[in-house]
């Protein structure tokens, strides 16, 4: 009785229109029929250069080199330097320093209690930090990216 009542009230039937396909995988992992790879147990994740080159991500910046004064330190025009600001400059560190309002890359050195910024190219003269008022070490260069 109820059913008949319901049938009487159907006035229109909407066609079902499947517009999307739902795919359900049968197995989540493949089953191999052959001999299992002997390397399976030795698979590591792949290598990530960031992990190797960047110790302090939030303090690490990339900069590009202009000029030839550091050529003997293997730093060429157009190279990208990885600069870590979390590191303290030690004697012998290559640093990005601020000289007269500009960034410059030099080797930081101490000789007889005096600090110097040295070029690595015989054509350039060293800068003694004491002589200049406006010198500040911005960060320490940790790697040089040079296109082979």
């Amino acid at each position: 009785m109820k059913r008949r009542h319901a049938e009487e009230r159907i006035t229109r039937i909407w066609a079902f229109e499947p517009r999307t396909k739902l795919e359900i995988p049968l197995f989540t992992a493949g089953i191999s029929a052959g001999f299992p790879s002997p390397a399976d147990d030795f698979i590591d994740r792949s290598l990530d250069l960031n992990e190797f080159l960047v110790t302090h991500p939030s303090a690490t910046f990339f900069v590009r080199v202009e000029g030839t004064s550091m050529i003997q330190a293997g730093i060429h025009p157009g190279d990208i330097l990885i600069v870590d600001r979390a590191l303290e400059p030690l004697p012998g560190s290559i640093v990005v320093a601020v000289l007269d309002g500009e960034f410059t890359v030099k080797r930081f050195q101490r000789v007889e209690g005096k600090s110097f910024l040295l070029a690595e190219n015989p054509d350039f003269v060293p800068v003694a930090i004491e002589d200049r008022t406006q010198v500040e070490v911005w960060g320490v260069v940790t790697y040089v990216i040079h296109k082979a």
Partner: peptide, 11 residues
């Protein structure tokens, strides 16, 4: 942006 890195002078 790789194309807009800060420039440092080696001069």
């Amino acid at each position: 942006s790789w194309a807009e890195l800060p420039l440092v002078k080696a001069s």
